[in-house]
Design a protein around this nucleic acid. Sequence first.
RNA 1: GGGCUUGUAGCUCAGGUGGUUAGAGCGCUACACUGAUAAUGUAGAGGUCCGUGGUUCGAGUCCACGCAGGCCCA
Length: 1118
Amino acid sequence: MVKYNEYKNLNYAKVGEDVLEFWKQNNIFERSVATREGNTPFVFYEGPPSANGTPGIHHVMARAVKDIFCRYKTLKGFQVNRKGGWDTHGLPVELQVEKELGITKEDIGKKITVEEYNQRCRETVMRFKSQWDTLTEQMGYWVDLNNPYITFENEYIESCWALLRKLYDKGYLYKGYTIQPFSPAAGTGLSSHELNQPGCYKMVKDTTIVAQFEVRKITRNMFLFEHEEEKVYFLAWTTTPWTLPANTGLAVGKNIKYVKVQSYNPYTFEPISVILAKDLVGRYFNQKAADLALTDYSSGDKLIPFKVVEEFVGSDLAGVEYHQLMPYVQPEKPAFRVIIGDYVTTEDGTGIVHISPTFGADDARVAAQNDIPALLVMDENGKPGPIVDRQGRFVPEITDFAGMYVKNYDGQDESAADYKPTDVLIAIKLKEEGKAFKVEKYEHTYPHCWRTDKPVLYYPLDSWFIKTTAVKDRLIELNKTINWKPESTGTGRFGNWLENLVDWNLSRSRYWGTPLPIWRTEDGEEEICIGSIAELTEEIGRAVDAGVMDEAVEVKDLHRPYVDNIILLSKSGKPMYREPDLIDVWFDSGAMPYAQWHYPLENEEQFQKNFPADFIAEGVDQTRGWFFTLHALAVMLEDSVAYKNVIANGLVLDKNGNKMSKRLGNAIDPFEMIGQYGPDAVRWYMIANAPPWDNLKFNPDGVVETQRRFFGTLQNTYSFFALYANLDNFTYSEADVPMAQRTESDRWIISKLNTLIQDVDANYADYDPTRAARAIQDFVVDDLSNWYVRLNRKRFWKGEYNTDKIAAYQTLYTCLEVIAKLAAPIAPFYTEQLYRDLNAVSNKHTEESVHLAYYPEVNHEDINKDLEERMQLAQTISSLVHSLRKKEMIKVRQPLQRILIPVLNDRMRAQIDAVADLILSEVNVKTIEYIDDTSGILVKKIKPNFKKLGQVFGPKMKLVAAAVQRMDQNDIAHLEREGGFEIMLNEEETAVLTPEDVEISSEDIPGWLVANEGKLTVALDITLTEELKQEGIARDLVNRIQNLRKDSNLEVQDKIHILLQRTEPAVMQAVENYSSYICAETQALSLDTVDELENATLLDIDDYKVYIHIQTERSTII
RNA sequence: GGGCUUGUAGCUCAGGUGGUUAGAGCGCUACACUGAUAAUGUAGAGGUCCGUGGUUCGAGUCCACGCAGGCCCA
């Protein structure tokens, strides 16, 4: 005979391990896909993680979300292929390798060959793969790890090339030159994606300078010298003093008001006139000095007098020329003019902005618009470049500062007493020259390189771009068809980003990544974009034939340095060299819908079947990363979305809402969590606690609570079922007991269950796992365990194995089995065990795993809202009676005669009547009596239905409410009897109310102990008759005997004999009258009373003392 | 500075389209129940629903402006 498994002290981590083993042994994952062969596919894309770091708890969150919907769709019969993937290229790997080898980017190709270096990257990037695989497995994330796509593989790269070629052919690929964030420490430009990395913008304290730009005293500018000044200066503020030698212009706001102020330089004490925004005068001149005369000043005075002498608007100043501030290098064209800049504000600084076109994106733009040149120097090859080299050092032409790092890139000790940043040295020089008006420390956010932690420079770089702006409208249009969870991320964050789209900067000057497949002649006149290995091989053949390449090489690896060694032949017969850049790694991952199948080079059908994705899910930080690159490529290549539904999940923070970091030590180890609480509790907690798109404050205490409250309760319910089902040999072999023959509570829980099936399905379908989890949890804890099982316990352990008992078993079995299926996507391990434990005995399902089974069907005819409503009434009434008992200190064991319930109408009476038995047994009362209108003691209360009346009466609502309050019992009766009642709003107006316009409820019953909630009122009769008292004693006695049984470790089915000493008459009377009841409850074969009892146990029942002795058939105990 | 987002009990969170006693779980306190027992029930304490204005007969809910936190970007 197969039994339901019974567990003592279930270890949830162990459940995880056992179930995992079962899955492996029986290929359940593979079969969950195979058994759906031929069904509608549900396409899921795995956003590839990088395995060069260890996984964290937030990965459990992200992957649980992915897993839930794939499992759910599988339950619904869809075939869900999930190809795993690895993101393997990019800067993080390179920097890690550099660190381990103790080299810098400059050493690559010198101390180590590019070949060796890349080999090292290839090995390093998969270093933590096994940890990732372990986590994936242990947390129950089902994804195909055996055939993943790997972005460094040749075929993958070849696909990327083919895609780039398509873009190239469409004219979307071009070479440009822009000011970009550049990290001298890492030796690379940074993409906007990289600058988006959390933590890049950091508070730093920089030396800032308000510099004085001296106006040229020429005819054109004489309007600025009308107060007989010797020197007039523009004041411009910069937080990057190192850019001052590259200044070629000043920008003012067209409509901003400026003033000329006469004062003194605070460092040299020279008399000067300065121009700055009118609104900002107060920031640079102390108002206390406003009344001082200029002539009162003597050198070194703290309070510097000033005088506003003239006012201009920005457009007046445009075109004014000034002397170069730091004349190390001369520009090619006329420069040093004031221009109009659309981005100038008076928020901070002076309202005049210093422009260095080589070191600022805005600067470059407005300078180009106004024909202001950049300040350039020639490098050793005669190519023009900025005055700071790619290591971040001033070039030799900047004599005073030649070779100095503009920021601390050489690791100087900043805490050293004599440490002076270059910015400070520049400030000192300008002070000495009388060109600094104010020098101060300023704290602001500044972008930092996300790996080296060093400040970024804005720097001119050659770059290849994808012209995403060409398809901007289409990107926006198609984005509107994507179902974003939450919606705001799609419309707001992502939508706004698309509205302000700039071209995608593709270039990276690094080593480990997908090389740009473009070869160019040295003069840049001719170029070719290679789209496949075959094409490259063919071109190599041509090049070898023509003699530009020495010998044909076989194309084995598309990485550097191999592709760099290939020289191709242009149409006109010139050699072409590969453009040295690599492409942005985000292109790699954005290309996964195509490249995972080696499309477009092969597998057309495979690709078409799996594009676009039905569903993807990643962190919200991917909005401008993967979410964007997927979308951009799909729109440009296929004129389609790449995904139809997307969940952008939030961050996992520590319990205090702080970011987790290994450095701070508040990071939570996912392996530890799973090892301690099992994978299900961790998953359930994360999903049920907050919607995935909200940030999750991860508190391990919450996992404990989830385990206890949800899993503990569910397991308790199962244990209860298993215990008795095993005793009764219930195997679900009987035909289903028709609903009509089941009890009210059976039909109620089945009704609730079917409602649950419906609700949970809707929530999953709406990509809202949190609501699904909460609905399941509420059902299990409140409805199933705390109400159904509690109410029906006796049916399981008492009486014959008859239809009623079978109905109870079937009902509870069904609930458990359905819960296993509904919860399976979120808690795949425990539900697997539950399902299998049930099915092992019943064999109701041929599927041996819950994940091979199908989502339960809703039986609409079993849903009965009337029934659900009256059970709610039963619960509320029981709760009210309990609270009344509590108030009167009458324990539940003491039976009471009756409760009184005022009923307002026949329906209410019928509803309560149907559940009367439940209520009576739950609260241990003999009868329910109803009080209705005919009783003459019912007092009613009336309240306006604000929602309904408000719509009708609007502003007169206050009058209506007052009129309703004035209605007395007769008025209410009239309203109910006649179906209408006329109220006076004021002296003129009247209105007619119908019963629907008001809410009538019962009030207190005079002279009774009552409690009420909402419309319900309950009164309790607390009169104790002799008979009730005796029954109370009998129940107490049963209770004490049961405790004795338990204390003696008797089995449930063990029979006993009871001996009582004849003492208290009241007790004896109760024993006599309730002897059969006592025997039945306590499994006693006999109950005898004697005069004297040896070895008796003393029981205290209220004020009575009872001596008792029980013995089993086996032996005498106690 | 901009975009998005959050703010409800000590903690974690619910509170369609505005409707008159703002809820749950945990925690705390007290009591009860007991053949599910390392469970359960009942009650109590605990709220200026972040603030200020506004719209409305009526605002936790809608609007505006702030404040505080978060994310992303300048």
